[in-house]
């Protein structure tokens, strides 16, 4: 059995992490499942654990002119009902897990768990979220894309933890979110999609297409998006095949117990096409 620490303050937490051999537990809804043991036995943690969920210093939702800042230990249920939570993120959280799980799980946990099927990532990628990492030696602020590098892999150092998630305030004329899971609640995503766009007088001013569960990391191709900004919706819609072709290269889903590659790919592209159709 491994040891555990329940720090009283955030500063204490960072000091504990400094040694570099503790694993952070926020809500534990991934950690406890991953390290489950025979009922009645303690979980099989591989490292000492630091329980961070009680750190009230990290439970907040703040904002300034440009950014909404979410403390890392804010639970999802709070975010779901908070008026400052961006609407798109709220929409995504609303279909995550179930109320019981949402009360004890966090955005930071969803990010660091780095599952290609994590739901909140769709919104965080679409909204250009930034992740604030902190250790006793200071802070690093990284884009969400730079934070996650592979399934279950992030660039966090052993002595760092996520302190905050920052989401720039952005307005769109069109947004769409769809999660395809095995069922309508408490489901792991088979394939998910977020589309955001701003269309002004028939011209696309901003376009963001994000897919999850279709590749080792969430797919957002800013270069492809950029190709279409400044063009008329009409133009883009007259040749969605080219656009789909671009995404085809990045959408490389797998066969697993939840779905198959063929369905995932086709459903992903159909959702994107459907979103584009709504721009007209």
């Amino acid at each position: 059995m491994v040891s555990h620490v329940i720090p009283k303050t955030y500063a204490e937490a960072l000091t504990v992490l400094k040694a570099g051999n503790h694993r952070v537990i926020a809500g534990g809804t991934d950690m406890m499942v991953r390290h489950r043991a025979w009922a009645g036995l303690p979980p099989l943690f591989d490292k000492p654990v630091l329980f961070a969920f009680t750190l009230s210093e990290l439970k907040y939702v703040k904002e300034d002119e440009q950014v909404i800042c979410i403390g890392a230990m804010t639970d999802l249920e709070t975010l779901l009902h908070h008026e400052r939570t961006p609407a798109l993120l709220r929409q995504v959280i609303a279909i995550m897990a179930s109320p019981a799980i949402r009360y004890v799980s966090t955005l930071a946990g969803n990010i660091v768990n780095a599952s290609p099927a994590a739901d909140s990532l769709l919104a965080l990628y679409a909204l250009d979220a930034q992740v604030v990492l902190e250790s006793t030696s200071g802070k690093r602020i990284l884009s969400i894309e730079k934070t996650i590098v592979g399934p279950g892999k992030t660039v966090l150092h052993d002595d760092e933890m996520v302190a905050e998630i920052r989401i720039p305030k952005t307005r769109f004329t069109h947004t769409m979110f769809r999660k395809v899971g095995g069922r309508r609640a408490d489901a792991i995503t088979k394939i998910g999609f977020v589309g955001c766009a701003t269309v002004n007088e028939g011209i696309i001013r901003d376009l963001r297409l994000v897919f999850n569960a279709v590749a080792p990391v969430v797919v957002r191709e800013k270069s492809v998006e950029a190709l279409h900004v400044g063009h008329s919706v009409k133009n883009v819609l007259s040749d969605t095949d080219t656009l789909m072709h671009h995404y085809s290269e990045h959408i490389k889903p797998i066969d697993d117990q939840r779905s198959n590659q063929h369905y995932r790919k086709e459903a992903a592209l159909r959702l994107a096409r459907h979103f584009l159709d709504t721009l007209a």
Binding site: G182, R184, A185, D256
Partner: peptide
């Protein structure tokens, strides 16, 4: 329409309530 269970070479692929999908109250 919902409950999927398959095996691969005799090993079941759906062996917990996450992977074996039964309806929730919402469904």
């Amino acid at each position: 329409y919902l409950e999927v269970m398959r095996h691969r070479e005799g090993k079941l692929l759906h062996k917990n309530m996450t992977d074996y999908v039964i309806p929730t109250a919402v469904d």
